[in-house]
């Protein structure tokens, strides 16, 4: 596999990651959201493997496999179980209407392109142009957490944000040291479990997973 083709595949996968990020931003159904998240993880792990091959960094293969197992299989499975147990099958409501959310998302992509332009000029890596996409994925994840009111979608937004960070590390410096990545993977996994426990608690306390309900925690009302 030559470098030009690898760069092409790399940017194509970056585009797919961006599409899944936008897809999550506008997807209304919880199951659809989980599937999109799994797809994003899949593209990410594929991309990591390719970058590992091109750069000759073999520890990237391990993170690729790690990403595949945790983000494509384990986390979506946990979320599935959660959604099943908590019986959330309805549409997920969004705060801002969908076309407007899309426009904000596009603006974020342009903004992150603007932010990363100095890095792009300094870096010599094959993957440098995808840094803007990675940063955009982070921001879209955050935007998703802002625009959604449902606790489960907020978690997915958080996980998408983490995907973006991981992607940024791969494209900016060919990945973080393996130890760090292992640690992060473990953190994410444990976070997911803790979130799951919290969901049950929240559900029991408020009889709803709408985070706007938390406003009721304030005293004196």
């Amino acid at each position: 596999m030559n470098l030009a083709l690898a760069a092409q595949i790399n940017s194509f996968l970056a585009a797919l990651v961006l599409v899944t990020a936008f897809g999550m931003l506008v997807q209304k159904r919880v199951y659809g959201l989980i599937h999109l998240f799994a797809w994003q993880g899949f593209f990410l792990s594929l991309n990591t493997a390719i970058v590992g091959y091109v750069a000759g960094k073999h520890h990237l293969y391990i993170s690729s496999v790690l990403t595949l197992s945790i983000k494509v299989f384990v986390l979506p499975y946990i979320l599935h179980v959660l959604v099943n147990r908590l019986k959330i099958r309805r549409d997920v409501e969004t705060v801002v209407n969908i076309p407007r959310t899309m426009l904000i998302g596009i603006a974020l992509v342009i903004f992150s392109y603007h932010l990363t332009s100095p890095v792009r000029e300094l870096s010599t890596l094959v993957t440098r142009s995808t840094l803007a996409v990675a940063l955009a994925t982070v921001m879209i994840g955050l935007l998703m957490m802002i625009t959604r009111t449902h606790a489960v979608t907020q978690i997915i937004g958080f996980l998408a944000l983490e995907n973006g960070l991981f992607f940024a590390a791969t494209s900016a410096t060919y990945g973080m040291p393996l130890v760090v990545e292992l640690g992060v993977a473990l953190d994410v996994l444990i976070a997911a479990f803790i979130f799951g426990i919290f969901f049950f608690q929240i559900h029991a306390a408020f009889d709803s997973l709408n985070v706007d309900q938390m406003a009721r925690l304030k005293e004196g009302e």
């Binding site: 940017s11 970056a14 585009a15 961006l18 599409v19 936008f22 506008v26 969908i98 076309p99 899309m102 998302g105 596009i106 992509v109 342009i110 392109y113 142009s129 995808t130 803007a132 996409v133």
Partner: peptide, 23 residues
Amino acid sequence: LTEFLGSAFLMATLGMLSFFILE
């Protein structure tokens, strides 16, 4: 339909963005 055509617009815009960003 606004959502349908909005997605079409989103795709086209992402295409244009990735022309500048990724190519």
